[in-house]
Write a protein that binds this DNA or RNA. Structure first.
Lengths: 218, 218
DNA sequence: TAGTAAATAGTAACCTTTCGCAAGTCAATC
DNA sequence: GATTGACTTGCGAAAGGTTACTATTTACTA
């Protein structure tokens, strides 16, 4: 099986080299598409796989579900930010990782992958800035993957009723105002809280947050 | 936010602890389902996420696309077999990985993940046994993720024609025998080669492999 | 240069994971 | 003891990322 250097393949390789970051297949696709608008995403995937089989690039399978690719072949490790998911290179001399005295259970070792995990300087700064704000709001759940922009009709109804209310109100009141059942209201409130659009300043009383108001008016 | 120990959650935790392996969500699902047939896959996913947030289990995001989970919390690393995809634990003293003198680019380090890659003893044995065979066949592509069992009707037709042939035959002959167009035959042969069902002992001549014969008779 | 093998675009399908909802369960309050 | 809200669950649907299939095109080699 021989490799042919097609235009597409060449372009994929070039763009990956040009960007010093660790691109995912679809990021690379977006870039290549600007130059070759008719290229297919499948081609990008195929070539990344082929190029990494041929040891012309490296495949990274760390952190999260997307594969990322690296044009640098020399041995190096990676450092990963738990908050912004940035991956950067790390130069570690061989001295720092010493496997010679480890019981490797009879495995024939072909390589190793070291991933250091932490918080990058940018995120550290960002966090210390927003700390006061976040401590008050339910900031801890906000980092999750929920799509914040999308509201169902019922959620919108609940949120609107809550906006009209002065101050915190009970779910009963919302139920009366919207005509929905109490249980349904309760469900919606839970979902809205998760999105950060509603909070509960007093037990069993709820209020719309600033973010909630913004979301409603989009 | 408090955690409740529901039956489902307890069972998931117990099964994960019972099996010493690193299970994926759906493997765990299969096991728990034998005891609680009505449990939902989503529940398994949800609980694995929750339990790992609560540091009651560990989430592994290495090697391949499925997340795997580990009931052992103590710091340990992993060793991964490139051939059978087995993951095993590795006990490495802190001495072996020394990050104190590494430039970590201002990151606040919270952890590290070391994955040693190699070939497990079982696969080593297996390979040395099958070496003669594999060297002849195109064994290198067999490790890929293609589903080997599924054949399209056309593929089956081509394979059958090839089986009837004595020795290697050209794609022209196959085309004549099947009534398919030469171009189509060529496509099918490519796909079949990828699956390991066909090989090309001589340039432009093809033959069905042992694996191909087996696949045909399933 | 002709003919073959490898690569491509486009799309469908796949697998894993997450989400929304309605309903259920439990613990804390009234 | 009834009620309320928080936490869960099962189910179905859908998202997200990746791979497979096939007709067609392109690069390479004899």
């Amino acid at each position: 099986m021989q490799l042919r250097m097609t235009n597409q393949r060449e372009m994929i390789l070039r763009e990956l080299k040009k960007s010093k970051k660790h691109l995912s297949a679809d990021e690379l696709y977006e870039r290549v598409k600007k130059i070759m608008p008719r290229i297919s995403l499948a081609t990008v995937y195929r070539n990344l796989e082929i190029l990494s089989d041929a040891s012309m690039i490296r495949k990274l399978e760390i952190s999260g579900r997307q594969k990322r690719f690296d044009s640098e072949l020399e041995d190096h490790d990676h450092i990963y930010c738990i908050q912004c998911h940035r991956i950067e290179n790390l130069d570690i001399g061989d001295k720092e990782v010493n496997l010679t005295e480890v019981d490797t259970r009879g495995y024939a070792i072909t390589g190793r992958r070291l991933e250091v995990i932490g918080l990058c300087p940018r995120c550290q700064k960002k966090n210390s800035k927003n700390n006061a704000k976040k401590a008050k709001q339910g900031g801890s759940t906000m980092g999750c993957g929920c799509k914040k922009g999308v509201l169902s009709d019922e959620q919108k109804q609940v949120l609107e009723a809550m906006e009209k209310c002065d101050g915190p109100c009970a779910s009963k009141d919302i139920a009366a105002a919207t005509g929905l059942e109490t249980k349904q209201v309760s469900c919606r409130i839970t979902a809205l809280k998760k999105k950060g659009y509603v909070d509960s300043p007093v037990r069993c009383k709820y209020a719309i947050t600033t973010e909630g108001k913004i979301a409603l008016n989009v």
